[in-house]
């Protein structure tokens, strides 16, 4: 059984600690992981901007990279959502490509989906005595339907106080190239999101997608707040280490 890590380009290049935390956590359940180094990006930046030919280049590379894998796991609902929801339209005129795209979709899981629904783990045994608020990323929640899994994991973390985020389901304004093309409205959106995060008085903002967290975190940093921004995999792994007395 081959269980492969899909780091996602964002975590591979900018946030390796997130994929690392995910890998370390999964390894605790006896999952032998591999990392096909031919993987690059899911193609979303091009796809969402309308450059489907360019997106296809990325998609084919990814499909090939994971051709032999039985399970593919990524720390992002957005990239997995891209594979599940958009690859079929990307290959709608290419039956051979479509079949391969569907095969990849079938074996691809967002991190919490895999942990909760496949490994049947809701309590990782983590301890994290902090006030935490959770931003549900749009693509994970809406394209992929990942809504309960992260909350279940968070509810089982010892000492963690989960504070509700006002207007939680509102987009943070990232939207990939949207944040560059219509930067001013994107900035207005992230400003409001950051205000809501600050209003909760949480010490930590947690989420499932580094795109959104890069955006909100970047805004929080710019405002000089000390709120820590973490991917759920990082929070859980740190919590496990704390429970084990390793930190």
């Amino acid at each position: 059984m081959k269980v492969s890590l899909f780091a996602t380009c964002l975590s591979d290049a900018f946030y390796p600690r997130v994929t690392e935390a995910m890998a370390r956590l999964l390894a605790r359940y006896g999952i032998r992981l591999d990392f096909p180094s031919a993987q690059t990006c899911c193609g979303q930046p091009a796809f969402n901007s309308g450059y489907w030919d360019e997106a296809k280049g990325a998609a084919l590379q990814l499909i090939d990279a994971f051709a032999d894998s039985d399970f593919v796991i990524a720390p992002s609902g957005s990239c997995i959502g891209m594979i599940h929801h958009h690859y079929p339209s990307l290959f709608k005129d290419d039956p051979a490509g479509l079949a391969k795209a569907r095969a990849l979709a079938e074996k691809s899981y967002e991190f919490t989906q895999f942990l909760v629904n496949v490994l049947d783990v809701k309590d990782v045994g983590a301890k994290f005595p902090h006030r935490v608020t959770y931003h549900p990323s749009c693509h994970g929640a809406r394209l992929l339907g990942v809504k309960d899994e992260p909350l279940e994991l968070l509810q089982h973390v010892h000492g963690l106080e989960l504070l509700p985020l006002p207007f939680a389901e509102d987009c943070c304004g990232f939207g990939g190239t949207f944040s560059i093309k219509l930067s001013e409205v994107s900035a207005a959106m992230v400003t409001e999101k950051a205000e809501h995060v600050i209003d909760t008085q949480a010490e930590v903002l947690v989420g499932l997608d580094m795109g959104c967290l890069m955006n909100i975190g970047g805004r929080l940093r710019h405002q000089g707040t000390s709120i820590r921004v973490m991917h759920l995999a990082e929070l859980l792994y740190e919590g496990v280490c704390r429970a084990d007395g390793r930190i």
Binding site: F14, P16, L33, E184, T191, G218, R221
Partner: peptide, 28 residues
């Protein structure tokens, strides 16, 4: 435009793919 209201992350000094070999050995 991004940095007018935000801070951007820098690329990690060592990407995940560059640290995988070491991590893989440790995990195994």
């Amino acid at each position: 435009a991004w940095n007018r209201l935000r801070v951007a992350p820098a690329l990690a000094k060592k990407s995940f793919r560059d640290s995988w070999k070491e991590l893989d050995m440790e995990l195994q």
